[in-house]
Design a binder for these strands. Structure first.
Lengths: 243, 243
DNA sequence: AGAAACTGCGAACATCGATCGCAGTTATGG
DNA sequence: CCATAACTGCGATCGATGTTCGCAGTTTCT
């Protein structure tokens, strides 16, 4: 057997197991000083403040008052940490809200609550979207979403994919949202400047027109309203059984 | 003045310029051995073969037969390289296909062609989605997409955002697509195994049902057909002016 | 009581992106 | 025509990262 460490699964011969299927603690040794939940909580705090790129194993270890090597007693690697963090903030989404029965309305409401989490934790849209990053709270989330589609006549695969698509859209919206930190205004201004410059310089009449139209018409619509309207349309399109 | 290097813009006081706004070559020194286009081409080849994570400055330099430091004569950093690569493969999309006049159909067709590029270059969905990663070919792409919506009565901002959303969806679909390399079958199987195990073990009846339904009904629909159908619905939803 | 399984962690390794400075090369201006 | 400025390639190197190894100490099981 190649088992070397219960918590990290350091050498599980070729078969990488997910964090959630590895026991957090053994029963033999001394009591652990920290816990996965604590790791996740502190990591989320750091990421909230300095962004995901600034979250390194060392910094997390320092914030926990220990050395980098110690973290690997709780986690097999950085990936596991991202799993933990993602699931932790997923737990902030209220899943006790009763379903009204209209799938489109229910999923739109859920998307709005998901959006709130993204706004609270901007690093969330920077987490590399693994094909299956689902912890316990993620599973609850998925269950809730699929339950909202109980009356929809669609194959199971279509439903799960619909949830993935909706989440991808929420992340995309969150990315566009202006982030408060790191004076992103300069960057944004520079970027936008380049866009209009390039659009007008090159031969891109439609683009230029769209950008000009954008500058003229002041957005009287809240971003949240725009989000909700768009989301309702997309979800409606996704669930429609019209061929 | 803080100018130190024309090509990389190494120290442009606080104002980071995009790659595309920096001249590729000065007029004074000796002829450059390589070019941005060559960098991009080789980088794309490497990423196609080994994935984006395996593409480091050093490896690219080695593939070019030079040292890592030399790359910074053509590019300000890894970000610039990603810009170059993204724009290069964007250029593979045919933008000469005539528009039929139906925005939904035209955009769906464009999305299909974009999907083909993603399948050809799986690393594309791993490129961190910067808010504005648009090179010359990207601008042409955007122009084409907006032109397809010429008759749609929507504010400019809505149109550009619609394109971004569609692209996000294409990327999401590409992520789900089984990748040929690195024996991802094992990972996928392990992941899927965990999903059904967790869904049935915990209290997730709807999820379990959806997964079971998925396993039973063999997918008689091509992934491409599923993609096209979904895309048409979503785009239709996005462009509908119904309140 | 001894073995087994665990814990924290200092030290170290490989790799990464990026910078600096220098020798050599080319164009420009007086 | 030549000195100067601007440029190129690149070896050496820096700081930071994720991760591993081995050891001393601790707790539980048999």
């Amino acid at each position: 057997m190649l088992w070397r460490n219960r918590a990290t699964g350091g050498a599980v011969d070729e078969e990488h197991v997910v964090v959630w299927e590895r026991p957090e603690r053994g029963a033999r040794g001394p009591a652990a000083v920290h816990s996965r939940a604590e790791l996740a909580a502190v990591a989320v705090t750091l990421a909230d403040r300095d962004g995901l790129a600034a979250l390194s194993m060392r910094r997390l270890a320092t914030a926990l008052g220990t050395g980098p090597a110690s973290l690997y007693r709780y986690v097999a690697g950085r990936e596991d940490l991202l799993d933990l963090m993602t699931d932790a903030v997923t737990g902030e989404i209220d899943l006790d809200a009763p379903l009204g029965g209209d799938p489109v309305a229910d999923l739109t409401a859920l998307a709005l609550r998901t959006r709130a989490v993204h706004l609270r934790h901007p690093w969330l849209s920077d987490v590399p979207p693994e094909p299956l990053r689902l912890g316990p709270r993620g599973l609850d989330y998925l269950e809730y979403a699929i339950r909202a589609m109980a009356d929809v006549e669609l194959p199971g695969r279509a439903k799960t994919e619909a949830v993935a698509l909706v989440n991808a859209l929420v992340a995309q919206f969150a990315r566009v949202e202006p982030r408060d930190g790191d004076g992103g205004d300069d960057r944004r201004a520079a970027r936008a400047g380049y866009l209009v410059r390039a659009a007008t310089a090159g031969n891109h009449p439609h683009l230029a027109a769209a950008l000009a139209d954008d500058a003229d018409v002041s957005p009287r619509e809240t971003t949240e309203e725009l989000f909700e309207r768009t989301m309702r349309r997309v979800i409606g399109g996704l669930l429609s059984d019209t061929r």
